[in-house]
Design a protein around this nucleic acid. Structure first.
Length: 395
RNA sequence: GGAGGGGUUCCCGAGUGGCCAAAGGGAACAGACUGUAAAUCUGUCGUCGUAAGACUUCGGUGGUUCAAAUCCACCCCCCUCCA
């Protein structure tokens, strides 16, 4: 079935795409500082990408995102297809126009929903059949269909359909799943040949927690001409040391000249380690979800603003933070807003946490440029000692 | 003055002889959250103790009973209606 291609808002001619869309300017060990170009702007890497599942970074408006300097956000294929519908979005000029977001958009394929909504789906060779979590209706997501949806959304960076395998899956299942994920990636690539339009396409490596399968996944996918490569299936409930083991095993094997994306990860320490392993892109709901649940990240570590100790704390949330929240309000007030369930609490907390994650990536980039990444990583480890200890548990 | 209803652990509120330190909710105090079915979930929540357990508590006082938040008597408060 031919694609009803919609012209993008920019006439972005793709020629020699893999060379021009991504450049690496500096390296420090495995860590890289680069620049990724999409039809909607330039993305300095390493980068943290706020998650806006349904076309909105929860509690945050585009002007806030601009203020904190977020060049790219996520959207979700599954969720936007169900509501409001990708064709409805296409009729409005794509997700950028619909959501009034001028920056770049990366869309996840729905592969994570294969994991998170596992009770509502059935995996078959042709694709995944979902029962909508909204109304129970049935929908078949194929590798091709998922691309079409993402084209309708006019995503700058599209992801292939994959199966995100849960932690604990045995070798046989993981191997079988991996083979399917690879076949789906091949179908995606052939349905949407490299250079067809300005919408970039990234492949997703899987392989669960078996190193040889991780390697196999990389080998099977990385010979293909994708615009970038992701590591999927981490942070699905495994112990921290296992995750790091697989991260450090997999990331270096991905093509060195293409952007590397660690999906759904993670904590500041995870991101710092990801960068250390050579990853360029990260996304996670943690800063926004935790913001709504009262956990805030600061230059002194992680705090829960709900705690009684902040009841009369007139100081800023983080004296070293540049964000509006920290420049304007006291911890005592933020605690009060949270306790009172004021909607402003969501916005101020989300604004701050996102700033923290954006700045984390920004500072990491600078550290790479200045050749002091190891020290930067050590600083992050010192901020989150418990987590660092868990990460080192199996090492 | 008359008739009726009611006083339960921080608050609301269930409980009408033993299974009650007492349901449920709230508040409070902690913890969790990783490609968002999340403004969600979990734990603690009389005192002491790691625990077993012990002790104190259901407006007050006194009784009945092997056993009382629950039954009886009197008293003190609160609410509604009538005069």
């Amino acid at each position: 079935m031919p694609y009803p291609l919609r012209p993008g808002p920019l006439a972005y001619t793709v020629r020699g795409m893999s060379d021009t869309i991504f450049t690496i300017e500096h390296t420090d060990g495995a860590a890289r500082a680069g620049t990724l170009r999409t039809a909607h702007g330039t993305i300095p890497t390493p980068i943290f990408m706020p998650v806006g599942t349904v076309g909105s970074v929860k509690a945050i408006a585009p002007d806030d995102l601009a203020a904190i300097g977020a060049p790219v956000i996520l959207g979700n294929t599954y969720h936007l297809y169900l509501r409001p519908g990708d064709e409805l979005v296409a009729r409005r000029g794509g997700l950028h126009e619909f959501a009034s977001w001028p920056g770049s958009i990366l869309t996840d394929s729905g592969g994570f929903q294969v994991f998170s909504l596992s009770s509502l789906r059935k995996i078959r060779e042709e694709g995944v059949e979902f029962r909508s979590h909204l109304d129970g209706s049935r929908h078949l997501f194929t590798p091709e269909k998922v691309l079409q949806i993402q084209r309708n959304l006019n995503s700058d960076i599209m992801m292939v359909l994959d199966e995100c395998v849960p932690y604990g899956a045995d070798y046989a299942y993981t191997e079988k799943s991996l083979a399917l994920t690879t076949r789906w990636a091949l179908r995606a690539r052939s349905a949407y040949p490299a250079g067809t339009a300005h919408n970039l396409l990234f492949a997703i490596t899987q392989g669960g927690f078996h190193k040889d399968l991780r390697t196999r996944s990389v080998e099977e996918l990385c010979g293909l001409d994708f615009d970038g490569f992701a590591i999927g299936g981490l942070s699905v409930g495994e112990p921290k040391d296992k995750m790091y083991d697989l991260l450090y095993h997999t990331a270096p094997q991905l093509p060195g000249n293409k952007p590397r994306y660690l999906m759904g990860v993670g904590t500041p320490l995870d991101i710092a380690n990801g960068i250390n392993a050579g990853v360029d892109m990260f996304d996670c709901v943690l800063p926004t979800r935790n913001a709504r649940n009262g956990t805030l990240y600061t230059s002194q570590g992680k705090i829960n603003i709900r705690r009684k100790q902040f009841a009369e704390d007139d100081g800023p949330l983080d004296p070293n933070c540049r964000c509006y929240t920290c420049r304007t309000f006291s911890r005592a007030y933020l605690r009060h807003l949270y306790a009172s369930q004021e909607l402003l609490s969501f916005r101020l907390n989300s604004l701050h946490n996102l700033t923290y994650f954006l700045d984390l990536a920004r500072n990491a980039r600078q550290a790479v440029i200045e050749g002091r990444y190891a020290a930067f990583l050590a600083g992050i480890e010192a901020l989150y000692p418990d987590e660092a200890a868990r990460a080192a548990a199996g090492a």
